[in-house]
Design a protein around this nucleic acid. Sequence first.
RNA 1: GGAGAAAUGGCAGAGCGGUCGAAUGCGGCAGUCUUGAAAACUGUUGAGGGUCAUACCUCCGGGGGUUCGAAUCCCUCUUUCUCCGCCA
Length: 423
Amino acid sequence: MLEVKNIKAHKDAYCEALKKRNFEAEEIFEEILHLDEERRSTQVQLDEILSESNNLSKQIGQLFKNGEAEKANQLKEKTTHLKDDSKQLSIQMNTTSDKIQELLFQIPNVPHDSVPTGQDEADNVEIFKEGDIPELTKNALPHWELAKKYDLIDFELGNKITGAGFPVFKGKGARLQRALISYFLDKNTEAGYNELQVPHLVNEESAYGTGQLPDKEGQMYHVTGDNLYLIPTSEVPLTNIYRQDLLNANQLPIQMTTYTPCFRREAGSYGAHVRGLNRLHQFDKVELVNIVKPEDSYEVLDQMVEHIKGILRELELPYRILRLCAGDLGFTSALTFDFELYSTAQERWLEISSASNFETFQANRLKIRYKDKNNKKKLVHTLNGSSLALPRVIAGLLENCQTDEGIKIPEVLVPYTGFEWIK
RNA sequence: GGAGAAAUGGCAGAGCGGUCGAAUGCGGCAGUCUUGAAAACUGUUGAGGGUCAUACCUCCGGGGGUUCGAAUCCCUCUUUCUCCGCCA
């Protein structure tokens, strides 16, 4: 959520930047600024009335104390109309504030200057590529075939228990998953991230805080009995830990990591691209969240990118990094880098991580602030990134590491899996 | 699920109809002393809105009510604690 004072100060620049997203902000900005004026003038009126009635109340108290009941009763009569007026005005003020809030919720984050223009994923800009794409033998298989061949993942069984998109991992498949989770968490804690375990269900307030509500309502599983949502990403509980907090500068940066399953309804997706592990309703992910001072956020974003690179390098997997174009940028993000892993058997790139800087957009919704050197209260910047999303890493790993003898586990993982080959 | 108690500033904790945005202690910050640090002493220290700055307004778990006036009384919800029941 953008701040009204920033809209006021940078209206033209914001309009210009939001055009990159095909978002015409001019009109909505005007309306917000107008409503803000209205809100303020209403408040001035309200404050005056409240001030007067506070004064009268004090006088009445004094008069009663002095035994001048008659005078007091005269003053009492004066307060009745003040009460009515203040009630009216406070309703009016709340209505206006709600309207402003509602409008602010509709506006996406302002893209960073470095975000390229573009309509959709085809316009994303590749900025880095690393790792050799292996030459596979003629018998090479896509991961869903490999999963079946080595009895690693059972998609049909998940179907029986829950439905499509809820696979059952078995034997070495399950162990490989657990190994990756441990490996990722170890890498993250080595880099200074604090490991946490968080709830997998969140309340409405949390979902609003990180921006899943109101605009992504249909994508979360909703537990209606208790009005809770299954998390689509652990970014939600992690970032909400600090909701409404006023931090001291020396508490920053806050670096958190956690492993959770993620639940996404992915309504309307189907077809070849969602086959196997490519797109699931439940999947595992290890997440990074950073809460930092505004002046540090872009440096931290770079660090996050370097950190994720390091992991992929160790896993010896071919990947590339994309700078998302304005059209493909998430609603809450100012700048996002996507990591894609090359799936050799499918001959396509799979998104396995996304590292974003939200600047103050989430922090403003969440009201996460800190006191800077001069004791000024400022909104923090929040960032997150996956390190990494498990299923597609497994998909890429199975496909790229397959040989005629079986699947060769990358060396760094062997201490975690306890085996070198899946045969 | 049943019975009882409670929720106050960063923390602990008083206040139980007007003088309360709130005593006191701890913590934080600034200063005195010290070669430096600690201790001691002195001062300062909640949040939001509003203003050029004051003034002023709002906030004592959330919501509603009584009253001229509510942290204080009433209703309701939530949470926490204790006891009981059920249970991984």
